[in-house]
Design a protein around this nucleic acid. Structure first.
Lengths: 185, 185
DNA sequence: ATTATCTATAGATCTATAGATAATGC
DNA sequence: ATTATCTATAGATCTATAGATAATGC
């Protein structure tokens, strides 16, 4: 052993964390195992002692990213006078738009996940269910309403990241927030 | 010349059409130039006489797909008593969800386009502008309202394609349609 | 003669594996 | 002795190019 078992376990956790960031930044197909391991400070040969395949790593990375995002959304909801508005404003924000590699896994990777393995798609489905549960629990809306609201949040963030014009990008975000907050009255 | 100039021109058009379908189906990185040319009935060596790069083909393919989608949306809008509702129902439908390779370029490829070349992103921005113009012209809504409505349409379709459970997928679509049509009252 | 298309290949990737190395844990 | 990590590489891709081929258009 080049490192202790404890260090090896830490290394594994670190690889999953790095993968979560790199996959969001470059897409599932935009970063290779060798570059991922290199970014984690390890050589790529050691990868297959910890993960059966690149896809298995992708599933673990997505699950961890969802857990982190859910925690952050819950935090802002718990401390807010209007929890649903707080969630909407956090998600549909210039900061989230500009933090592709640290943001929501759905907004970064869901279109690729559509073409991915059943295991990967299941991880996304579970993550989306988690978002909906949170909105129902703290937002005081039905599951169907939560679906429509989250669809708007996801679409607005995706559009704002795709267009080149920064004015148009900001306009997409503010229009979506305004539409969602007004609809509650 | 193995073929006449007219046939060569038709071949070029055909390659762009095939690319539009194959890119939507497999993603920009999920299909190679050789396989694309093979799907078009040509060998991959001839590709670079017609296109300077794979990315240039992607830009042309996206532009053509947007033109086709915009035409179809205009058609249903022109013939409808409620043009905006007709656009919404056509876009947020199980048929559109199940036709990834023939559907909207934004729903199939925009998250990848975010990581793409400025030329590719500009093609998407122009296509999105076209959608918004159509909704403003036929739907009787402001540009900002069109942005929020299209965000919901895009998000709902993306989510419905990502989840595995068909019941949940249908529920996402129907919830989004219901939310958009009710909001007009 | 021109040129659209072809075959063949260069050079750079990619995922995954085989076997060597070396430090931990018994 | 066990095993986490390493080096090295197999085999399959990928984009792009070079040069041959062969039919059109002059």
């Amino acid at each position: 052993m080049k490192v202790s078992r404890e260090q090896a376990a830490r290394n594994r956790v670190h690889v999953v964390d790095v993968a979560g960031t790199q996959f969001r930044k470059h897409g599932f197909d935009g970063i290779g195992v060798a570059d991922l391991m290199n970014a984690a400070g390890l050589t790529h040969g050691g990868f297959y002692n910890n993960f059966p395949s690149k896809d298995a790593l992708a599933v673990e990375a997505v699950e961890r990213v969802f857990a982190e995002t859910r925690d952050r959304l819950r935090e802002v909801a718990v401390g807010a006078a209007d929890p649903l508005a707080a969630i909407i404003r956090l998600y549909i924000s210039p900061e989230h738009r500009d933090a592709l590699e640290a943001g929501c896994a759905v907004a970064a990777l869901s279109q690729d996940a559509t073409r991915g393995s059943p295991e990967l798609r299941s991880a996304f489905e579970a993550g989306i269910e988690g978002y909906l549960d949170l909105m129902v629990e703290f937002g005081g809306v039905s599951r169907g309403q939560a679906m429509a609201i989250y669809a708007t949040m996801l679409g607005a963030l995706t559009l704002s990241r795709t267009v080149v014009d920064p004015v148009m990008s900001d306009e997409i975000l503010s229009s979506a927030v305004e539409s969602l907050l007004r609809r509650k009255e």
